[in-house]
């Protein structure tokens, strides 16, 4: 199975972190349900064009944090997650996206007021 993950080589965020966060977001949003089988480290590395060293690190972190589970000889699966953690992840991915937007606005010399105004007007459309 291919995962809808997009890696940015331009982002300051390390690649293993990007993989980790995007898989978390897919789990939190319900796109990846408990028990869903994940691609092998080698297969995901090929799809994302990254080294297995990077993908392994992302999988290890996800496993350590309880998001995924590896069963010897069977593969890697989405673990059963507490709903409150899902909620937390959701909030986390939205605030990350908004923070990035704010950073872009600052780079273009927007003031706090201007950002607020633009945000509210976009929210109403």
């Amino acid at each position: 199975m291919e995962l809808p993950i997009k890696i940015s080589q331009q982002s300051r965020e390390p690649i293993y972190h990007q993989i980790e966060n995007q898989i978390k977001a897919l789990i939190a949003s319900g796109q990846l349900q408990t028990g869903t089988s994940l691609p092998s480290i080698r297969a995901l590395s090929k799809d994302l064009e990254v080294s297995v060293i990077t993908t392994r690190r992302a999988y290890q972190n996800l496993e350590y944090q309880g998001f995924i589970q590896t069963l010897q000889g069977k593969g890697t699966f989405v673990a059963d997650l507490n709903p409150s953690i899902k909620q937390e992840i959701k909030q986390d991915s939205v605030s990350r996206a908004l923070s990035e937007a704010i950073e872009t606005a600052y780079q273009h010399n927007y003031s706090k007021q201007q950002i607020k105004k633009l945000f509210l007007s976009l929210l109403d459309t």
């Binding site: 080589q9 690649i15 080294s51 060293i53 990077t54």
Partner: peptide
């Protein structure tokens, strides 16, 4: 090099 290091 590790590939991901070379990409950056």
């Amino acid at each position: 090099y590790e590939k991901d290091e070379l990409s950056r």
